[in-house]
Design a protein around this nucleic acid. Structure first.
Length: 510
DNA sequence: TTAGGGTTAG
């Protein structure tokens, strides 16, 4: 009965039946809670009621002495992971008297799902060090690979690759797919391609999707389209994700016509366009400056535009400085995602570009009023398998002054060659000189400087940034790549930038 | 009859 309720997403009823069991004196067991907990979170539109139900079920399990039963506790970890309540998952994990490979994997997956990839990797290391009988399996490996990909931890990823070979996990397509995705997300496109070829005939739709998106995020639109065509020729049915990937690739490469054709062809493959496909199309059109077309497409949608769709339009307005459409996008976004500070910041940015300081101030007041905080810019770099992170106003790192001075030298050099710092994105109403100083402290510049000092000549510098790369950092990094003859690879929140010899692979289109 | 994973998107 409880299992059926879980499958049908009836959490309330599952709780009620469990209460009945107590009242009627029917003994419960670990199965009751495992199914009951699944029912609590399945299919819930909102986290709030699901969270209340899980806690209630958790309390019930504790009262009956099942709170720390291995299967029940593991299910609890997964429930809290899915609800984003990491501290509860940690507490359950810490108190378990017996943990097996599944419990460890659930906890590692919890960190990976909740933007704590560093902790996921650490826990994995703890796991293999803790007990000789505790052996990770393919699911554990896939979770950790995913975590490495998220933080761009290539060194750790390679350690895992070696581990996979030693333990023979390389016979599993799921593991190879995750390995391929990890390499491509860490900037190693060629190795990803190599693994794809090596998988050979065993490749599945996930392998194809990974390769298509891999080429896409590196700006190789042509290759991405080729792989898509190859996939069709081989008789593989493209999935919803295939189209998100290939449309995204068109967007990064500026292939407007190709993208439009693909979008129209979706019905032929029995894939109905969803909001995420519209978001890709709006991004594609908007980025290319075809804002009117983007707006027309939104208005033609039969499904309600998602925040991502309006977000794409807003992003395009920022690139092309379109105040009117930005306001239109925000009139929806402020309703749909009232707590997302990023939307307010983007609009403020657009107002600042248009020199509408009064409007900028209004938005800043709004942000304060709702106690919304901007996500601070953060960049990180891996040196000798250790991650170093930099914040934009980072005074904790004693090396920051040295790093800023180094950047300052490059900037002086650049100014001699006619460069003017792009201070438009600094929203504070302060003197130009002060704005330039803020730009010098941007986290990606600090990370590049750190890389220059702490890696050897000829070695590529790999940086990861949590936001979009700003125009000024883009110009400065191009210069540094030429001046120091270094290859600099930056992964921002959207895509890769390969800087070499003063040129960026995105061809300044991002 | 019970527990954990991979591909995408502003």
């Amino acid at each position: 009965m409880l299992k059926a309720l879980a499958l049908a997403d009836h959490g309330e009823e599952a709780l009620a039946r469990l209460a009945d069991m107590g009242r009627l004196g029917v003994p419960v067991d670990s199965y009751s809670y495992a199914h009951g907990l699944k029912a609590c979170i399945a299919g819930s539109a909102s986290h709030a009621p699901a969270s209340a139900r899980v806690r209630e079920m958790h309390a019930h399990a504790i009262r009956r002495g099942y709170g720390l039963h291995t299967h029940v506790a593991t299910t609890l970890i997964d429930c809290y992971a899915k609800l984003g309540i990491v501290t509860y998952a940690e507490r359950v994990f810490a108190w378990m008297p017996e943990r097996n490979v599944v419990s460890w994997s659930a906890m590692i997956g919890c960190y990976a799902k909740n933007e704590r990839p560093g902790d996921a990797i650490e826990l994995f290391q703890e796991m293999i060090a803790s007990d000789a009988d505790l052996v990770p399996n393919s699911i554990t490996i896939v979770s950790v690979l995913h975590a490495c990909a998220v933080v761009n931890a290539l060194g750790q990823g390679k350690v895992l690759h070696a581990y996979i070979l030693r333990r023979g996990f390389d016979s599993l397509v799921s593991v190879l797919n995750a390995l391929m995705a990890m390499y491509m997300k860490c900037g190693c496109l060629q190795i990803g391609r190599y693994i794809f070829d090596w998988i050979g005939r065993r490749r599945d739709v996930v392998s194809w999707n990974s390769l298509i998106s891999g080429y896409g995020m590196h700006g190789f639109g042509r290759e991405s389209l080729q792989v898509f065509e190859e996939m069709i020729k081989e008789g593989i049915s493209p999935s919803i994700i295939t189209f998100v990937s290939v449309l995204g690739a068109c967007s990064h490469a500026g292939f407007v016509e190709e993208g439009k054709k693909l979008f129209e062809s979706m019905v032929e493959y029995n894939v109905t366009p969803r909001a995420e496909h519209y978001a890709c199309m709006v991004d594609l059109l908007g980025r290319a400056g075809r804002l009117d077309e983007a707006v027309e497409l939104i208005q033609s949608m039969r499904i309600g535009p998602s925040p991502q769709v309006w977000g794409s339009l807003l992003g395009a307005c920022r690139i092309h400085g379109h105040v009117e459409y930005a306001e239109m996008a925000c009139s929806h976004l402020f309703d749909l995602e009232p707590r997302n500070a990023g939307n307010y910041i983007l609009l403020a940015d657009i107002y600042a570009q248009a020199k509408l300081q009064n409007q900028v101030d209004v938005l800043k007041e709004l942000l304060e009023e709702h106690a919304l905080e901007k996500v601070p810019g953060c960049s990180w770099i891996e040196v000798k398998k250790k991650l170093y992170s930099f914040g934009s106003v980072d005074d904790k790192n004693p090396q920051v002054e040295e790093l800023q001075a180094l950047i300052g030298e490059f900037v002086t050099q650049m100014k001699n060659e006619g460069y003017v710092p792009d201070t438009r994105t600094v929203l504070y109403d302060i003197e130009e000189e002060e704005k330039e100083r803020i730009l010098l402290g941007h986290s990606e510049k600090l990370a590049v400087a750190f890389g220059l000092i702490n890696t050897s000549r000829g070695e590529p510098i790999r940086i990861t940034k949590n936001l979009r790369l700003c125009e000024d950092c883009h110009s400065v990094t191009k210069f540094i790549s030429k001046f120091t003859e270094r290859e600099i690879i930056v992964r921002d929140v959207n895509r890769f930038h390969h800087f070499r010899d003063g040129v960026c692979s995105c061809r300044d289109y991002w």
